[in-house]
């Protein structure tokens, strides 16, 4: 049983570990894309424009209310044709196929973005009003104020929520195994099928996911401690 997981040509050990790295990479890029979407949509939600509010509201409701798998199918089957459609508008007439990593990142990032929006919105609302007024009093421009006063506080307040979003996103990446991207889930499927040992490889996959979640839990706990220096952490009871 152990030689199945050995490194080198005989075993699948190195393949599984590489797949683990791929899972981490896709998760990282999806979370980054998600945070970008989150910042934009959160500012939409807090803006005074009704249209922008509506756009953000519809986006988060739809993405959070529809199964992740459906979103992934939409982008997997519709992503390339959508890109080709836009390329045609700019005069490019060839065939474009997006690779599995890009589609996966966009699909999982889009889902992650809906959750990040709520986290970031909550964090912005939690910054005391006085902080904004201080910036004005000091004669800062809006950009300076956001960069120097608001952003650091939003980042600190959003950190626990971002930790949750990271966990969700990490697990959602297993769904893009349907698009043939070789991450943990896909690799385990392939290995299980070719060796007829599903138990061994799915157990390995479980261990890999648990290692990643445990590691990232530690990381986020440490980060929260570091960034809440000088603040009283409210223990939830």
């Amino acid at each position: 049983m152990l030689e199945l997981l050995s490194f080198g040509d005989q075993g699948w050990g190195d393949e599984m570990l590489l797949a683990g790295l791929m899972t981490i990479l896709v998760s990282l890029s999806s979370v980054c894309l998600g945070l970008l979407i989150g910042v934009i949509l959160a500012s939409f939600k807090l803006s005074k424009s009704r249209i922008l509010k509506l756009i953000a509201e519809v986006y988060t409701t739809v993405v959070r209310g529809v199964p992740e798998l459906l979103v992934i199918y939409l982008l997997f089957f519709g992503g390339s044709s959508a890109v080709m459609y836009f390329a045609k508008m700019f005069g490019y007439d060839g065939y474009i196929e997006l690779n599995a990593f890009t589609i996966g990142t966009f699909a999982v990032g889009a889902i992650s973005g809906a959750y990040s929006t709520e986290v970031i919105r909550g964090a912005i609302l939690a910054v005391p009003k006085g902080q904004f007024e201080v910036g004005e009093t000091l004669g800062m421009s809006k950009f300076q104020m956001n960069l120097r006063i608001i952003f650091p506080q939003v980042a600190r307040l959003a950190l626990p929520g971002i930790g949750n979003v990271w966990q969700i996103t990490l697990k959602d990446t297993s769904l893009i195994s349907v698009t043939a991207l070789v991450e943990i889930m896909r690799q385990a499927k392939v290995a299980a099928a070719s060796e007829h040992e599903p138990f061994v490889f799915y157990t390995t996959a479980i261990v890999l996911y648990l290692l990643i979640t445990t590691g990232s839990n530690k990381f986020f706990n440490r980060a929260e401690k570091k960034f809440s220096k000088g603040f009283v952490i409210e223990e939830s009871t």
């Binding site: 959602d172 297993s174 889930m185 499927k189 599903p198 479980i206 996911y209 648990l210 979640t213």
Partner: peptide
Amino acid sequence: GTPLLLQIF
């Protein structure tokens, strides 16, 4: 800590 898809499989 593990994806549901993996649990089902």
